[in-house]
C-alpha cells in the first residue's frame, strides 16, 4: 500500500492519474477521500458505479467511505483483490497516520509519497495556520515528489531545497513527463535502480544481497529493524527454513513479512542515502541469517547519484 499525501492542491490527483497510467501489468486500487473531487482522466474511465470507478486498464478508484479499514478489507477480500493499493491521504491528514493502516497483517506497506507543490509550498509552509502541518507531512514522507515544475522556471529548485531542508535524507524527485518516479513510489527497487539520474535529488546507494538457500526469516527481520533508521527501503523474496517463499519488506521504517505465492529469488535489495550505509556491516549481519547451511555470499553494489547536492 502506497500512501499519497500532500497539501490540498499539491497535485495528488495528477499523481494518481500518472500512477494509474503507469500501471501496465498491475491492478491498482486507488482509495480517495471523495471520488467526486477527483478528476480522473476521461480516457481512463470505463464505468462509474456510485462510489467506485472502474478503469480501462483493470484498475479501480473508490471513495474511502465511513472507515478506511472497512474499505481496505472489502478491497483485499474481494473476488479479484488488487495487486497494489494506493490511498490518498486528506490534504490535512498526517500521512504516516494513514500509513499505519498498512502496518497490519494483511496489507504490505510500500511507504509514504508526499506531493510538494513547486509553486506554493514555500509560501504555504510559512503560513502560521497551515505551515506546521505542511512541514509534518513532508517529514512523514519516504519519497517527496515536486509537482507543477512545468509551471515555473526557478521555483522547482527552491522547492527541492525546501524539501531537503525540512526532510533531510528523504529522496526528492521532480515529477517529470517520463514518470521515472513511479517505480520508486511503488517501492520497486529493482526497477528503480538505476533511477533516471536527473530525477533523483538525494544520492542513494543500493545493495543487493543474495541468500543462496534458506534463511532464518526472524533473524532477517531483526537485522532490518536494527538498520531501519539507516535504510530508505529494503525488499526481498526469500526462502524460510521450512522451504516457504516469503516477501520481506522494509518501508517507512517498518518491516513486514508476507507469504509469497511464487518462487523465491533469494535476493534482498536495500537502498540508503549515500554515506549512511556501511555495506560490509549490513552484509555481515545478513550473512548470519543464513540457515541451516551457509553458502558463499554474493554481493553486488551499485550506486546512483543525483545531479545536485542538498543545500
Amino acid at each position: 500500500m502506497v500512501v499519497l499525501g500532500g497539501w490540498l492542491g499539491a497535485g495528488k490527483t495528477t499523481l494518481i492519474n500518472r500512477l494509474l497510467r503507469a500501471a501496465h501489468d498491475e491492478r491498482i486500487a486507488v482509495v480517495v477521500n471523495d471520488i467526486g473531487e477527483v478528476n480522473l482522466d476521461a480516457e481512463l474511465v470505463k464505468a462509474r458505479d456510485g462510489d467506485t470507478v472502474e478503469l480501462t486498464n483493470g484498475c479501480v478508484c473508490c471513495s474511502m467511505g465511513e472507515s478506511l479499514a472497512l474499505t481496505l478489507r472489502d478491497l483485499v477480500l474481494s473476488e479479484r483483490p488488487p495487486d497494489r493499493l494506493v490511498v490518498e491521504a486528506s490534504g490535512v491528514a498526517e500521512p504516516d497516520r494513514v500509513a499505519a493502516y498498512g502496518d497490519r497483517r494483511r496489507i504490505r506497506p510500500d511507504g509514504v509519497v508526499v506531493a510538494v507543490d513547486a509553486v506554493d509550498v514555500i509560501r504555504r509552509a510559512a503560513d502560521p495556520t497551515y505551515g506546521p502541518l505542511v512541514c509534518r507531512q513532508a517529514t512523514a514522507a519516504d519519497l517527496l515528489v515536486v509537482t507543477k515544475a512545468d509551471l515555473t522556471t526557478n521555483q522547482a529548485e527552491s522547492a527541492r531545497r525546501w524539501c531537503t531542508a525540512v526532510a533531510p535524507g528523504t529522496p526528492v524527485v521532480v515529477a517529470s513527463d517520463d514518470d521515472g518516479w513511479v517505480p520508486l513510489a511503488f517501492g520497486e527497487l529493482d526497477a528503480a535502480l538505476p533511477v533516471p539520474a536527473d530525477a533523483l535529488d538525494v544520492p542513494v546507494v543500493g545493495a543487493t544481497w543474495t541468500a543462496d538457500g534458506t534463511v532464518d526469516v526472524e533473524a532477517v527481520v531483526d537485522v532490518l529493524e536494527a538498520w531501519s533508521d539507516r535504510l530508505l527501503r529494503a525488499k526481498g523474496v526469500l526462502t524460510d527454513r521450512h522451504g516457504w517463499s516469503v516477501a520481506v519488506h522494509l518501508a517507512g521504517g517498518r518491516v513486514t513479512v508476507d507469504p509469497f505465492a511464487g518462487s523465491a529469488s533469494g535476493r534482498l535489495v536495500a537502498v540508503a542515502p549515500s554515506g549512511s550505509l556501511d555495506i560490509g556491516q549490513l552484509v555481515a549481519a545478513l550473512d548470519s541469517t543464513r540457515s541451516p547451511s551457509r553458502s558463499d555470499r554474493d554481493l553486488d553494489q551499485s550506486t546512483t547519484g543525483g545531479v545536485s547536492q542538498p543545500c
Binding site: E66, A69, L70, R104
Partner: peptide, 26 residues
Amino acid sequence: EGAAWDPHIDLEAGRLWESGLVWGLN
C-alpha cells in the same frame, strides 16, 4: 479481525477508538 485492518484497535488494552469505533459499532 478488525485489528488486522485498523491501527485504532488495541487488543491488549481492549481499546477501540476513532475508526476502530466504527468497526465496533458495526
